[in-house]
């Protein structure tokens, strides 16, 4: 499994179990999370903490916006582009 897919599965699992709290929900890579009403903007702080804990870097506050973090794909792309090598 590629890194991207592994990261996707990890973040999706986090979103479904911790934030959306419905592990059975079918969440596509490009489904809108905040504008789609699945999570609210308060949850982005939790996403930020999760990324920091799991991937060893702290996403900048300015990057935690609806424009940059509204889909699973955006989150995974962000982690893959910024995680320490």
């Amino acid at each position: 499994m590629s890194d991207w897919n592994a990261t996707r599965d990890t973040i999706r699992d986090f979103l479904l179990t911790k934030l959306i709290r419905n592990p059975r929900l079918k969440l596509g890579d490009t489904d809108p999370l905040i504008t789609g009403g699945l999570i609210d903007s308060f949850s982005l702080v939790e996403v930020q903490l999760f990324i920091e804990e799991k991937y060893g870097f702290r996403p900048a506050d300015i990057d935690m916006t609806v424009e940059t973090m509204d889909t699973l794909k955006q989150m995974v792309d962000y982690v893959e582009a910024n995680r320490p090598q």
Binding site: N22, K26, P32, I34, T35, G36, G37, L38, I39, D40
Partner: peptide, 22 residues
């Protein structure tokens, strides 16, 4: 049913800013 739920979440968010928890 999944699509109905998705549409409801999306419309409620766009019109009221509320995220439905379930």
């Amino acid at each position: 049913r999944f699509e109905i739920a998705r549409q409801i979440r999306m419309r409620v968010a766009k019109e009221t800013e509320v995220s439905l928890s379930d």
